[in-house]
Each structure stands twice: as structure tokens, then as C-alpha cells.
Measured scan of single mutants.
Amino acid sequence: NKEKKVFISLVGSRGLGCSISSGPIQKPGIFISHVKPGSLSAEVGLEIGDQIVEVNGVDFSNLDHKEAVNVLKSSRSLTISIVAAAGRE
């Protein structure tokens, strides 16, 4: 599966507009579980089932849900590497 990078700058009070969840035991990782229509996440093409592999240089493969949320909230400017639809297989 091809990795792609998206860049998101949080402007004003707009949030990311997506929710994440941890994958099942047999498929660990952090996946996008919800994308709000019209949100920044939707605008850059994030979709439900995409796996987040890295954010701002932080490897997401071994993070738990709480740590992942903290990384996503730690910066107003995010570089997110995803594997599209990895969670839909």
C-alpha cells in the first residue's frame, strides 16, 4: 500500500475534524475512524480506514490511542503520513 503525506495547518478554532481509534490486536496501529464532512481532514483527503503511520516525525506504529491524540494536539501544523485504506482490508 502506498504511503502518502498530507499537511494540515490548524487555523483559528478549526480542529482537525477527524477521530482516531486503535486497530485490533492482529492489526495494531492508529486508524481514522471518523471524518467530519467539510473539515480540514476531509479537505486534505483523509478517509475512514486510513492508517496514520507518522505525525511530525513521530512513529505511530507503537503508540496507544492516548499518546496518538496527544501528538495530534501538540502542534498547530501537522505533517501526517498515512497508508490509505489500510484499515479496510
Rank of each mutant, 00 (worst) to 15 (best):
Lys36Leu: 13
Leu46Lys: 01
Phe31Gln: 04
Pro24Phe: 07
Gly23Lys: 05
Val44Glu: 05
Gly15Cys: 11
Ile30Phe: 08
Leu78Gly: 06
Lys66Gln: 12
Ser9Asn: 10
Gln51Val: 02
Ile82Arg: 07
Val35Gly: 00
Gly17Ser: 01
Asn62Pro: 05
Ser41Lys: 01
Arg76Cys: 09
Glu89Arg: 09
Gly15Trp: 07
Asp59Ile: 06
Val35Ser: 00
Ile80Glu: 05
Phe60Ile: 06
Leu46Met: 11
Leu78Gln: 03
Leu40Tyr: 11
Ile80His: 04
Ser9Phe: 09
Leu16Trp: 02
His34Met: 08
Leu46Arg: 00
Val69Ala: 15
Gly87Pro: 13
Asn62Ser: 12
Lys27Tyr: 08
Ile20Thr: 05
Ile82Lys: 10
Pro24Asn: 10
Asp59Asn: 13
Ser41Ile: 06
Ile52Leu: 09
Pro28Phe: 04
His65Tyr: 06
Ile25Val: 13
Ala85Met: 08
Ile80Ser: 03
Cys18Asp: 02
Gly29Cys: 03
Ser81Pro: 03
Ala86Pro: 15
Ser22Asn: 13
Gly29Ile: 02
Gln51Asp: 01
Pro28Glu: 06
Ile30Arg: 02
Ala86Ile: 08
Gly23Tyr: 06
Phe31Asn: 02
Ile80Asn: 03
Ile48Gln: 12
Gly23Glu: 06
Ile30Glu: 04
Ser33Pro: 02
Gln51Gly: 03
Ile48Glu: 13
Ser13Glu: 14
Lys36Cys: 11
Lys27Trp: 06
Ser21Lys: 13
Lys66Ile: 10
Ile80Leu: 15
Glu43Asn: 10
Gly38Asp: 11
Phe31Thr: 03
Leu78Thr: 03
Arg14Met: 08
Val44His: 15
Gln51Leu: 03
Leu16Asp: 04
Arg88Gln: 14
Ser33Cys: 06
Val83Gly: 08
Ser77Gly: 07
Val83Thr: 07
Ile30Pro: 01
Arg88Leu: 12
Ile25Ser: 13
Pro24Gly: 13
Val55Tyr: 00
Ile82Gly: 04
Ser81Met: 08
Gly87Ala: 13
Phe60Trp: 09
Ile20Met: 04
Gln51Asn: 04
Val55Leu: 04
Ser13Tyr: 06
Val44Cys: 13
Val69Ile: 14
Val83Arg: 15
Asn56Ile: 10
Gly15Ser: 14
Asn62Thr: 11
Thr79Trp: 10
Ser39Asp: 03
Val55Ile: 06
Asn62Leu: 10
Lys36Phe: 10
His34Tyr: 13
Ala84Leu: 06
Ser81Val: 11
Ile25Met: 12
Ile80Ala: 04
Ala42His: 13
Glu43Gln: 12
Val44Ala: 15
Gly38Met: 07
Leu46Val: 04
Val35Cys: 02
Gly45Thr: 00
Ile48Gly: 05
Ile80Gly: 04
Pro28Lys: 12
Leu16Ser: 03
Ala42Pro: 00
Val83Tyr: 09
Ile52Phe: 02
Ser13Met: 07
Ser77Asn: 15
Ser41Leu: 04
Phe31Ser: 02
Ala42Leu: 01
Ala85Ser: 12
Pro28Gly: 08
Ile52His: 02
Gln51Thr: 01
Leu72Ser: 15
Ile20Trp: 02
Gly87Asp: 15
Val83Asn: 10
Gly49Trp: 01
Cys18His: 03
Asn56Asp: 14
Ala42Gly: 05
Leu10Phe: 03
Phe60Gln: 02
Phe7Arg: 09
Pro28Cys: 06
Lys66Asp: 14
Ser81Ala: 08
His34Arg: 10
Ser22Thr: 13
Leu16Gln: 01
Leu16Met: 08
Phe60Ser: 03
Lys4Val: 04
Gly23Ile: 05
Ser13Gln: 14
Lys27Val: 05
Leu16Pro: 03
Ile52Trp: 02
Ile20Asp: 04
Ile20His: 00
Leu46Trp: 01
Glu89Gln: 11
Ser33Tyr: 05
Lys2Thr: 09
Gly15Phe: 05
Gly15Asn: 15
Leu78Lys: 04
Gly45Asp: 03
Lys2Glu: 02
Thr79Gly: 04
Leu16Val: 04
Ile32Trp: 02
Gly87Lys: 14
Ser19Thr: 15
Gln51Phe: 02
Lys5Thr: 11
Ile80Phe: 07
Val11Ile: 11
Lys2Ala: 02
Ser39Glu: 03
Ile82Pro: 04
Ile80Gln: 03
Ser13Trp: 04
Gly45Tyr: 01
Ile20Ser: 02
Ile30Trp: 10
Glu43Val: 05
Ala86Leu: 09
Val44Gln: 14
Ile52Arg: 00
Ala84Tyr: 03
Asp59Val: 06
Glu3Val: 15
Gly57Cys: 08
Leu40Ala: 15
Ser39Trp: 04
Gly17Lys: 00
Pro28Trp: 03
Gly23Gln: 06
Ile20Pro: 00
Leu46Ala: 02
Ser19Cys: 11
Ser19Phe: 06
Ala42Val: 03
Gly29Met: 06
Arg88Ser: 14
Ile82Ala: 15
Gly45Glu: 03
Val53Leu: 06
Arg76Tyr: 07
Ile30Met: 08
Ser81Glu: 07
Val55Asp: 02
Thr79Met: 13
Pro24Lys: 08
Gln51Met: 06
Ser22His: 10
Ile48Lys: 12
Leu72Trp: 03
Ala86Ser: 14
Glu3Tyr: 15
Phe60Arg: 02
Val35Thr: 04
Gly87Cys: 14
Ser19Leu: 08
Arg76Phe: 05
Ser41Phe: 05
Leu40Thr: 09
Glu43Leu: 06
Glu54Val: 03
Val11Gly: 09
Ser33His: 07
Glu89Asp: 15
Leu46Asp: 02
Ser19Glu: 14
Phe7Lys: 13
Ala42Tyr: 10
Val35Leu: 05
Lys2Ser: 08
Glu3Ile: 15
Ser81Cys: 10
Lys4Gln: 05
Val35His: 00
Lys27Thr: 12
Gly45His: 02
Glu54Met: 12
Ser41Trp: 02
